[in-house]
Design a protein around this nucleic acid. Structure first.
Lengths: 234, 234
DNA sequence: CGCTGCCTTGACCACTTTCAATTCGCGTGG
DNA sequence: CCACGCGAATTGAAAGTGGTCAAGGCAGCG
C-alpha cells in the first residue's frame, strides 16, 4: 500500500477544513498518510478493526455489506471530498462494510485515535460529521421506503437517477455515469436480481432511454426515466 | 397539549445526563417542558418545522414516513430514555417523519435553539448524539440488507424478534410485546402486505410459535422463530 | 346493539426469480 | 497478431412467491 507525505494544499479546499489556518492544516496532516488504491483494492474490509478513518481525495469507491450467507448489497458510493470509514467516531470497534475502489483513487487516512484531537482543533468537524451521518440516515430511510413500497422497475430507475446525480458526466451521447457499474452492481443497489435488471435495461435501451455497455451506462433521456421513477403508474 | 414544570429527578438517571451536577440539571431543564401524549397523538408530523427535540421518559412511540403517494413505512420505535426528533441537530429544517404515541407517553421537549447551549454545557451529549445516529444508521443498513436479500417470511420473523428485544415482557404465555402492534404495523415494518403477514402469523400460531390477538402478539417459542429468521433455509 | 376497525381466508394471477444456455467484449499470453 | 479464456450481459422457459381482489368474521366501544 503506497503512501506519501502530504502537502496542505490537498485538503485546503475541502469544505470541512475551510476554516483552518495554514498551521492548523499542517497539524491536521501531521499524522495523516495518503493512500493510493487501484480498482478492486480495498481501503478496509467488513469486520476489520476500525483503526483509521478517511477522506477521499480523488476517484470513486463503493461500500458493500455482506451477510452471513454471502448475500451482498451496495450500501453507498463515496465521491471525492467525502468522509468515509468513520465507524470509530460512532463508537464502533469494527468496520460494518467493505470499501472498494472502482477507479484509481486516492484517500487520506488518519489513525482512529486522531479523531478526538482533530475534533478538538476543528470543532466544525464534529458538527460536520453529525450532519453527514444524519444525511446518510435520511438517505437510508428513503431507500428503505423505496425497497418496502416500490416495484423493481421504479427502484432501478431511481438508482440510475441517483448515479447520474452523483457521478453524471455530460457527453454528446447523453449523461454518462463516470465509473464502472455492472448490472450486478445495480442489482445489489436495488434488491433485484442481475437478470431482472438486465431485462429492464434492455427494454429501456430499445426505447432509447439509456445506452449500455460492459460496466457502462449512459442516460439519454433523464426526464423519461424520472417519469418511470415517480410517475403515478400507467 | 398539557405541559408541566419539571423536577431534575426525572432526567437525573438518563445515561446522557449522568455526568451533570444538580445545578447543571436545573439549567438543562430551564427551557424544557414535559408533554403528555395519549395513544394516537403525535409529538411532531412529517414536514413540520423542526423547532424542538425530545427525550422520551415513558411510553412508546412509532416513527413513520409516508411517501408522496401515501405509502407508509415504520421507520423505528422509540423506547423510554431515547432521544428523538433531533432533525435540527443534523441540520435539517423539518422533521422527516411523524412520531405517534402507541401508549400513554411522556416526553420532554426542548426548543431546537437550545441544542447548541445544551451541547456546550454537556459536551457528552454531542458525542452521544453522534453515536446514537451512527447506531441508527447501522440499523438502517441492516434493514436495507434484509429488505434487499431476504424473503418475506424471514423479514417478518426478524421484525418480531426485534420487537421482543425492544419491548418484550415475560408472561406465563410467553414473551408479550408490550405495546399495541397491528398486522398492518408489522407489514409496514417489513415491506409486505397486511395479508401476507396475517397468513404467515396464522401459520405460526397454528404451530404454537406465537399467539396473537387484536393488536397483540406473544412469542411462545423465540428459538424456533430465530431458526426461521436465520436458518439456512430448508 | 350496531358501528368501526382489525383480522382472516380463499382464489387468482402478475411479476421476479430460478435455471440454463449462449453470446459478447476485453485483456492476456502464446 | 491472433487465439484463448473469463467475466459480463442477454435471453428463453418454467416455477413460485407474494400481491391483488373479494368476502366475511370478530372484538371492543360508543
Amino acid at each position: 500500500m503506497p503512501t506519501t507525505r502530504l502537502d496542505r494544499a490537498v485538503i485546503r479546499d475541502l469544505p470541512m477544513f475551510r476554516p483552518l489556518s495554514p498551521e492548523d492544516l499542517d497539524a491536521v496532516l501531521a499524522h495523516a498518510v495518503a493512500r493510493r488504491l487501484a480498482p478492486g483494492e480495498t481501503a478496509f474490509r467488513q469486520g476489520d478493526a476500525a483503526d483509521a478513518f478517511f477522506v477521499l481525495l480523488h476517484g470513486r469507491l463503493k461500500v458493500t455489506q455482506t451477510s452471513a450467507d454471502g448475500q451482498q448489497v451496495v450500501v453507498r458510493h463515496v465521491n471525492p471530498g467525502e468522509l468515509f470509514g468513520i465507524a470509530r467516531a460512532v463508537r464502533r470497534p469494527d468496520f460494518p462494510g467493505t470499501a472498494e475502489a472502482l477507479t484509481d483513487s486516492v484517500a487520506i487516512a488518519w489513525p482512529a485515535d486522531a479523531w478526538d484531537a482533530l475534533v478538538a482543533r476543528c470543532p466544525g468537524l464534529a458538527v460536520d460529521a453529525l450532519a453527514t451521518v444524519g444525511q446518510r440516515l435520511q438517505d437510508a430511510h428513503t431507500r428503505i421506503r423505496e425497497l418496502a413500497t416500490e416495484a423493481v422497475e421504479r427502484r432501478v430507475a431511481h438508482a440510475l437517477l441517483r448515479l447520474v446525480r452523483q457521478a453524471g458526466r455530460k457527453t454528446d451521447e447523453g449523461i454518462l455515469i463516470d465509473f464502472p457499474v455492472s448490472r450486478q452492481d445495480i442489482a445489489e443497489m436495488t434488491g433485484a436480481t442481475l437478470h431482472t435488471v438486465s431485462r429492464l435495461m434492455a427494454a429501456w435501451e430499445a426505447k432509447g432511454l439509456i445506452a449500455g455497455g460492459r460496466k457502462r451506462v449512459t442516460v439519454r433521456d433523464p426526464h423519461a426515466l424520472f417519469m418511470l421513477a415517480e410517475g403515478e403508474g400507467r
